[in-house]
Design a protein around this nucleic acid. Sequence first.
DNA 1: CAAGGTAAGTTTCGTTTTGGAACTATGGCA
DNA 2: TGCCATAGTTCCAAAACGAAACTTACCTTG
Lengths: 112, 112
Amino acid sequence: MKWSDLSDNWCPVARTLSIVGDRWTLLILRDCFLGMSRFEQFIESSGMTRHILADRLKRLVESGVLERKAYSTTPKRYDYVLTDKGQELAPALLTLRDWGKKHMPVRRATSA
Amino acid sequence: MKWSDLSDNWCPVARTLSIVGDRWTLLILRDCFLGMSRFEQFIESSGMTRHILADRLKRLVESGVLERKAYSTTPKRYDYVLTDKGQELAPALLTLRDWGKKHMPVRRATSA
DNA sequence: CAAGGTAAGTTTCGTTTTGGAACTATGGCA
DNA sequence: TGCCATAGTTCCAAAACGAAACTTACCTTG
């Protein structure tokens, strides 16, 4: 089965995961909730590679979770900001955070 | 950056995602919450391939989210059941479900 | 007892996706 | 003119994945 088929699955969890269920995407959204909006910020914060980030941002814009807004015309530069639809993922991030705090104690510090 | 490094990340969301942040894992857990516990059930329900399921189940057991319990000794057969730690992922699944219900309407039915 | 069925994986192989790093484009600034 | 910043894109090798066949171990049915 192809992962992309999940967007029409009968199960609403599966449909949600067709958008945020891959590696990195929820981490980008976490950064958005922390106030970040730019390509280089996401790169620095998450540690993901540049072309994966470019791909994920494109998908998130296509699915209406993020909006790509120009903040400079010359040169062309864009902010990626949460739409209302994206904002409503906050409860999901919060439950994942709470679970991590409770069940995933840190064993050693990391710089990232 | 390696994805596995996230288990020691400063951010609790990232640490949670180091376990459930890949494709398929949350879908397996959804099935667990629906009462499923066996290999063939997960295969039939999710549509994922057998060796990917085997890999995900092993990881989930290693991380203490599922427990592998023998339900037959001859031949050896196992149930995969949620631990307390796994049970506590319910709120996360519910928020993802709610978001899907609200923001991911079904366009056409699928058999899966 | 041989044939077929069930459950739970494992192996193989060809295709995709990913990580890492370098490269490109556009303009600002010294 | 040369260097810096932002936001990507391209290239290649490595890892992950999908599909399907194969394996192991037992059970049932003829």
